[in-house]
Nucleic acid binder design. Structure first.
Length: 463
RNA sequence: UCCUCGAUAGCUCAAUGGUAGAGCACCCGGCUGUUAACCGGGCGGUUGUUGGUUCGAGUCCAACUCGGGGAGCCA
């Protein structure tokens, strides 16, 4: 008899009812009486457990009745309709084989644990309901992203993890070196001689694949990256990690409006895909992590995102009569409290804030005709804040060079980036989506450490 | 990095400056359809670390470590 997956049984129970079935999985809990008992078995293929009914007809009944949680079993029996109210069917066991034993000190108890405690046992927490749901949703969402772009013929670009370009100053970087830190080679000025380092120059872990993605954009037209990025910022918040994943599409012959349409369609696609393809996991999140989650996501799928120019946002905030800790004035960046007010109080749905003052945005963002603002957009969502940052890129060589001078950037470091404008440069645009922030929004999990299998944050690189 | 709150049994939490407790987990026993099963009994502690105040510190003070919430930076 070949084994079946619990997922197969749940998805098509009629094919298995009254049939002999063999399943393998791990014990979530055992409830036992004198002559019979119940096992909740989870085989990893499905969020829900299969209830196993066993009785003293088993020759190893006494042993099975005392199994500690997390014992691995293979169970053979007949799938029958369950008289119990909480499950539609159950497996009446004829034979139970212990595949892998466990011990009573198994840390995961069959009760609710705090997320903080579960973080300390990151190697075991995927066996809990919450993380079983979160990490399957993470997987499904990652696949949805690939599907979305591949269906639209975007080319998936693998931009480098190790980079020599200190691009856009997006944040502090982790240095990559093979030099002996206890005995650094020095040049004549007494500075570290990186010509003796592995790459012959100073290198770091990437903070963004955008500039490299632009090169492929101007060859393949529509491209996207999806991979890890690293920031050595000393950020101690529930929304920042030192290692996280970003999705960065880049589209040619496209402007900021096209960019926002793409971002909006992509998010709606991912939300819809996860609701349809991980319904049990989404329902669990809706019930135990964030009540109202599904309703909110469905509302977003069916609503139009707001487009709000920065200048109007400032006026709106100023006229709101709301007391803010940080004053609102044209030219200042929006503070968290301002973003929350806009997206949570005023609109109650995602808001694109567009056309920021050029001084507070990156050098590569396209200068608008007013010469004061750039074609940038941030997508703010209730609860999570900024989830996407994007812009139309400056394709005009002279203006780009002027902007680089304004920012004090060295042309030599960007010679290849400038070449893109020289050889058939066209208008193009793109954005970056913080994948973990998307997962937070999808699951209702409020700490980024709980949507990353093994999170790396300031002072923490366990496992 | 700043502000703020916290750290007591494996977990979640109690405990006026004066004998460290409960629920759950775990162990033993009971129970013929359980659902975080239930009922009875038992085991379980260098009170985060270091130092200080005091006759006496889980409790007060200081520093440090780790964690929660908020802010900055950002995705």
């Amino acid at each position: 008899m070949d084994g079946v997956l619990i997922r197969q049984i749940y998805r098509n129970p009629d094919a298995f009812l009254q049939q002999s079935v063999k399943v393998s999985g791990w014990v979530r809990t055992v409830r036992v009486s004198k002559a019979f008992g119940f096992i909740e078995l989870n085989d990893g293929s499905f969020f829900k457990n299969l209830q196993i009914v066993f009785d003293e007809m088993l020759d190893n009944f006494a042993e099975i009745a005392k199994l500690p949680v997390s014992t691995a079993l293979t169970v053979e029996g007949v799938l029958v309709e369950s008289p119990g109210a909480k499950q539609p069917f159950e497996l009446k066991a004829h034979r139970i084989v212990i595949e892998g034993s466990s011990t009573p000190d198994y840390p995961l108890q069959k009760k609710r644990h705090s997320l903080e405690f579960l973080r300390t046992i990151a190697h075991l927490r995927p066996r809990s309901n919450t993380f079983s749901a979160v990490f399957r949703i993470r997987s499904v969402a990652a696949y949805a992203i690939h599907r979305f772009f591949q269906e639209r013929n975007f080319v998936y670009v693998h931009t480098p993890i190790i980079t020599a370009s200190d691009c856009e100053g997006a944040g502090a970087m982790f240095q990559v070196t093979t030099l002996d830190l206890n005995d650094l080679p020095r040049n004549q000025e007494g500075k570290v001689d990186y010509s003796q380092d592995f790459f012959g120059k100073e290198t770091n872990l990437t903070v963004s694949g955008q500039l490299e993605a632009e090169t492929f954009c101007l060859a393949f037209r529509n491209v996207y990256t999806f991979g890890p990025t690293f920031r050595a910022e000393n950020s101690n918040t529930p929304r920042h990690a030192a290692e996280f994943w970003m999705v960065e599409p880049e589209i040619a012959f496209a402007d900021l409006q096209d960019d926002m349409v793409l971002a909006e369609e992509m998010l709606k696609y991912i939300f819809r895909y996860c609701l349809e393809n991980a319904p049990e996991e989404m329902e669990f999140c809706n019930q135990f992590i964030d009540q109202g989650l599904i309703e909110r996501l469905e509302h977003i799928i069916n609503s139009d995102f707001v487009r709000l120019p920065y200048t109007e946002a400032i006026e709106l905030l100023q006229k709101s009569g709301q007391a803010f800790s940080y004053p609102v004035a044209w030219g200042c960046d929006l503070q968290t409290e301002h973003e929350r007010f806009l997206t949570e109080q005023v609109f109650k749905k995602p808001v694109f804030v567009t056309d920021y003052p050029k001084e507070i945005k990156a050098f590569y963002m396209r200068l608008n005709d007013d010469r004061r603002t750039v074609a940038a957009m941030d997508l703010l969502v209730p609860g999570v804040g900024e989830i996407i940052g994007g812009s139309q890129r400056e394709e005009r060589l002279e203006i780009l060079e002027q902007r680089m001078r304004d920012f004090g950037l060295d042309f030599e470091d960007y010679w290849w980036y400038l070449d893109l404008r020289k050889y058939g440069g066209v208008k193009h645009a793109g954005f970056g989506l913080g994948f973990e922030r998307l997962i937070m929004y999808l699951t209702g999990i409020s700490n980024i450490r709980d949507v990353i299998p093994f999170p790396r944050t300031v002072n923490s690189a366990e496992f």
